[in-house]
């Protein structure tokens, strides 16, 4: 399984990446902002994307729309936190599969992963 993590915080990327690799994900690619996420999505065509909402150089929402525009089948899970309800709502409307809320526990990511692995 190939997973793209887009988050401008290296701390967050690190945590998510470790949870994923410890759960058997063979390939994890990181993107540092919204535009990077769009570019990397096009290059590697991952099975799943963890997309942070607040990012510089295109927000997660903008990136989601572009990714979904180029591939309507893209599987995107938004990473969000309390206070972003409106944006998450729009993301769901725009085709995000699911979302995880910060602060999350490793189990939260595992849960998402297990749903998509099956």
């Amino acid at each position: 399984m190939k997973i793209l993590i887009a988050d401008d915080s290296a701390f967050m990327r690190n945590i998510i990446k470790n949870i994923l690799t410890q759960n058997g994900v063979s390939e994890v690619i990181e993107a540092v902002d919204g535009q990077d996420a769009i570019n990397k999505y096009g290059e590697i065509n991952p099975d799943l994307v963890f997309l942070d909402i607040m990012m510089p150089n295109k927000t997660g929402l903008e990136a989601l729309k572009e990714i979904k525009g180029s591939n309507p089948e893209a599987k995107v899970v938004m990473c969000t936190s309390v206070g972003q309800e409106k944006v998450v709502e729009e993301a769901v409307e725009s085709g995000a599969e699911d979302f995880v809320t910060k602060p999350f526990k490793p189990e939260d990511i595992q849960e998402v992963l297990s749903k998509f692995q099956s």
């Binding site: 915080s9 701390f11 967050m12 607040m54 510089p56 936190s81 910060k102 602060p103 999350f104």
Partner: peptide, 19 residues
């Protein structure tokens, strides 16, 4: 403004994750 907002936002999320 957006830049400042993002920093507060990231600080919030990361620190909450750390507990």
């Amino acid at each position: 403004i957006n830049n400042i907002f993002r920093s507060f936002h990231t600080l919030k999320g990361n620190s909450a994750t750390m507990g």
